[in-house]
């Protein structure tokens, strides 16, 4: 969007001052963690506000050579990928008839997903724990955590995707139908590729939510199966004396989410706005 240049609403020195303060407060804790990881515990104790002097690489080296860290990262990645694929596939399949078919129970069906937004995982957490560990015997597995997470990601996914699918041009699908293509074929070969931008958006949202999730993994995963947030939390309590080590561990755990955010910034932002409008 081309904005017309006016002299109006430009920043004065005060605006820049406020902006600088905001940046300092926002990034301060993140930088404290990252720089703290480059210091020794002795440096941190002597002067908490100081810069690394000398720069210590031991803490970070300790984290990246720690097999537990890679184990947690692998678990987080696997769980987030399964969650994302299941939520996006089931979500776009459900959104498709809600966008394209006319049938009596269409709006009530959509309402089921809208109402789903009101059920936080916290409400169902204890029965979910029993269901997954005892009834399904999926406790401490990737699928055991990914399936409930996908189910709780579905409402957002459907609510964002339905208007997106509605906005896609119908002509291509109608032409394919005239050529005798089946509905399922049309969905698979035409609707799905056309809705790729929307799928990426909801996929990124589901991935980030899973990557950052804590409550459900806390109840369902132990030992080798823990994800990064659990690993970070446990590491910080188990090594509470080793502040520098904790900061290094936490900082490295931040990197994947930050990189994903920087790469997908537009998608995340438009997805959140879509969720708000929907």
């Amino acid at each position: 969007m081309a904005r017309r240049a006016t002299t109006y609403g430009r920043g004065g020195p005060l605006v820049y001052l406020v902006a600088a303060a905001v940046v300092a407060v926002t990034l301060g804790p993140v930088l404290y963690g990252a720089l703290g990881g480059f210091r020794s515990n002795e440096q941190l104790a002597r002067d908490p506000a100081g810069l690394p002097d000398p720069w210590v690489l031991e803490n970070y080296r300790g984290v990246v050579t720690n097999p537990d860290f890679w184990r947690y990262a692998l678990n987080s990645t696997a769980v987030a990928l399964i969650t994302t694929v299941v939520a996006v596939l089931a979500g776009v399949m459900a959104a498709y008839p809600l966008a394209r078919y006319q049938f009596r129970f269409r709006e009530p069906l959509f309402l089921v997903f809208v109402l789903g937004l009101l059920f936080p995982a916290a409400v169902a957490i204890v029965p979910l724990f029993i269901l997954v560990t005892r009834d399904l015997q999926l406790g401490n597995t990737w699928w055991g955590i990914a399936l409930p997470q996908a189910a709780f990601a579905l409402p957002t996914t459907v609510v964002i995707l339905r208007p997106f699918l509605m906005a896609l041009p119908k002509e291509v699908e109608e032409a394919a139908m005239l050529d005798g293509a089946s509905r399922v074929g049309i969905f698979w070969r035409i609707a799905l590729p056309l809705s790729m931008p929307g799928l990426v958006t909801v996929g990124v949202l589901a991935f980030v939510a899973s990557w950052n999730a804590y409550l459900l993994p806390l109840l369902l995963l132990q030992g080798d199966m823990r994800t990064l947030p659990l690993g970070v939390a446990d590491y910080s309590t188990e090594h509470s004396a080793d502040t520098a080590g904790v900061l290094a561990f936490t900082t490295i755990a931040m990197i994947p989410a930050l990189m994903l955010f920087l790469a997908m910034q537009r998608r995340i932002v438009s997805g959140l706005q879509g969720a708000v409008k929907g």
């Binding site: 605006v15 926002t26 950052n212 999730a213 936490t250 755990a253 955010f261």
Partner: peptide
């Protein structure tokens, strides 16, 4: 219309992307 507006927007959104646990530990 201030300088570095895009960068500012990115920075201000960083804490939201971090896991609550990770932000909490820091």
């Amino acid at each position: 219309r201030i300088r570095g507006r895009g960068l500012l927007r990115t920075i201000i959104f960083v804490p939201y992307v971090l896991a609550e646990v990770i932000a909490g530990v820091v």
